[in-house]
Amino acid sequence: MKIKTLEEILKKKSSKTEFAILTNLENGDSEIYLPGTSPKGEFSKYVDQIENFFKSKKNGVIENSEIFVETYIKPIKVIIVGAVHIAQYLVDFAKSLNFEISIIDPRGYFASKQRFPDIKVINKWPKEAFEEIKTNSSTALIALTHDPKIDDPALQYALKNKFYYIGALGSKKTHENRCQRLSEAGFTNDEINSIHGPIGIKLGGKSAPEIALSIIAQLVSETYKK
């Protein structure tokens, strides 16, 4: 690898631009590839395969070739509603994974910078908060307040915008009531059943970090199903 290529990689990394490093394993040539552009020389034959690595979020050697592709893919946006204790542990776990977290909570005493030093915290009601965050079908929502006033509008927004993962904290009973309200609001059974509620995989633990772990485990597993 040329020093120039290394410097270019570091620049792309710090600006969090999506790119791939293409390496010809036979002769050591390497170059940077931006999705949607045309790779140069020998690499140009493999543009479809390179794009597939982006889609599957994987790295590897292209079949029947000596070309190695390493992709740098933007983190997945995860929106947490409720700047509660569990959210603090979720933030910790997400650091080492490819998730970018934003937190929404209209309650100022929860949504403080001091509780979440490095995270985007929006101290507004969900409806206004979503005006500040770009979302799409690759966004995930974790609703943690179990207060219908705060969670419900966020859940409705996530369902309408087809988030790939929607989870809501609360007991079975709380979740039944929630489903009832969403049904009255006009959501179909399929939509309502796509919500993971009660949120998280069964670990058996009840402490805040244990619940956070069960949620993040479910989120990772659903991300790979995507």
Binding site: E70, I73, P75, S96, T223
Partner: peptide, 8 residues
């Protein structure tokens, strides 16, 4: 799902 952007 490694966080490549933050790797040092």
């Amino acid at each position: 799902m490694k966080n490549s952007f933050d790797e040092k």
